[in-house]
Amino acid sequence: MSSSLTSSKQQSWIQKRPLLRDAYFTDLQNGSYIAFIYSIVESIFMICLVVFDIYCLSEAQPGTTNYRYFDISFLFVYSGNAHVRNLLIFCSAVSFLLSLYLLVSSFILLNALKKEHEQKFQPWLIAAFLFTVWRLIAIIFRSISNDIYYSYHQAMLVIWIILIAANIFFWLVVYSNFQELADITRLEDMAKLKMGTMSSLNASRSLSHHSINSMKNTQSNSLTPKGSYSTASV
C-alpha cells in the first residue's frame, strides 16, 4: 500500500507542469539567466581543463624519463596501458566538443530568454543534458583509471560531483521555465482560436438575419401589387 502511494507521488511530480514552481532563491526566469551564466563559466572551465589534461598526457608519455615541465610534476598523469591512455584522451576530446556545444547553445538560450521564445530553449536543454551525462561517465572512468592518491584527482572528483549536481538543478530550472512559457503560449493560441471561432459565428449569424430580412422584404413587395389589383377589380 505504501509503495503504491510512493509511486503515485513520484508520478504526480513528474507529470506536474512546471516541474519546479521557482528556483528556490528566485523565480524561474531569473533562475534561467543564472543558468546561462553558470553554463558559460562551466564550459570555459571545461575547455581550459581539457587543454591542460591533453597537455599533461602528451608530455608524460609512457617510457619518458623527464616528468617535470614548467614547475609541474607529472607523476599524477596516467602512464599505464596504452588503450586506457587513449580512452582518457578520447574523453578529453569529447568533453571539449560538448563544451563548445554548450557554450554556443548558452548564447542561443540568452536570446531566447530575452524574447521569451521557449522553443529556442531546446538546444541548451539538449546540450546541458548530454554534457551532464557525459561528465558523469567521464569522471567515473577517470576516477577508476587514475590514482585517487594524488590531490589533483581527488579535487577533480569532488569538483565534478558538485558541478554535476548543479547541472541537474539548473537543467530543471530551465526546463520548468520552458514548460511554463509553453503552457502560456498554448493558452494564448487557444484564446485566439476561440476568438476567431466566435467572430466567424457572429458573422454567420448576422448574415443569416440579413438574409431572412431580405427574403421578408422581397415577399412583402411581391404580395402588395396583387392585393391592390384585386381591390381595384372589386
Results as ranks from 00 to 15, higher is better:
R142P: 06
A166V: 12
S200G: 08
R142S: 15
A165H: 00
A182C: 01
W160E: 02
A166C: 13
N177H: 14
S199E: 11
L163D: 10
S199V: 07
W171A: 07
W134E: 11
L187T: 14
V158D: 02
A155W: 15
I168N: 05
V173Q: 04
S151W: 10
I139G: 00
I144T: 11
M190R: 13
W134T: 11
K192G: 04
I162G: 04
S206M: 13
T197K: 00
W171V: 12
Y150H: 13
W134D: 01
W160M: 09
R205V: 14
F169A: 06
K192A: 10
F141K: 06
L193P: 03
S145M: 08
I140V: 13
I140E: 09
Q154D: 03
A155E: 13
D147Y: 00
F170S: 05
A155Q: 15
L172T: 03
A166I: 13
A182K: 13
S200F: 07
L172M: 06
I161K: 08
K192Y: 10
F141A: 07
D183C: 09
D183K: 15
N177T: 08
S200H: 05
F178A: 05
A155P: 02
I162A: 08
Y149M: 10
M190G: 02
T197W: 02
W134L: 06
W134I: 07
S176M: 03
I184N: 07
L157I: 04
S176K: 08
I164F: 04
A203S: 06
Q154F: 04
M190H: 12
I168Y: 05
T185Y: 11
I161T: 13
Y149T: 09
Y149E: 10
D189Q: 15
V174W: 08
S200A: 06
Q179I: 10
I159W: 14
V158R: 00
E188C: 00
L136K: 07
A166R: 05
H153G: 03
N177I: 05
I137G: 12
I164V: 11
L136A: 09
T197D: 11
G196P: 05
A203W: 05
A165G: 02
D147V: 08
I164G: 03
H153K: 02
V174M: 08
N167H: 15
E180F: 14
Q154K: 03
K192E: 10
A166G: 10
I139D: 00
L193M: 12
R135C: 07
R142N: 15
T197L: 00
R142W: 14
I140D: 12
I184M: 03
S143D: 12
M195T: 00
Y150N: 03
T197P: 07
A191C: 03
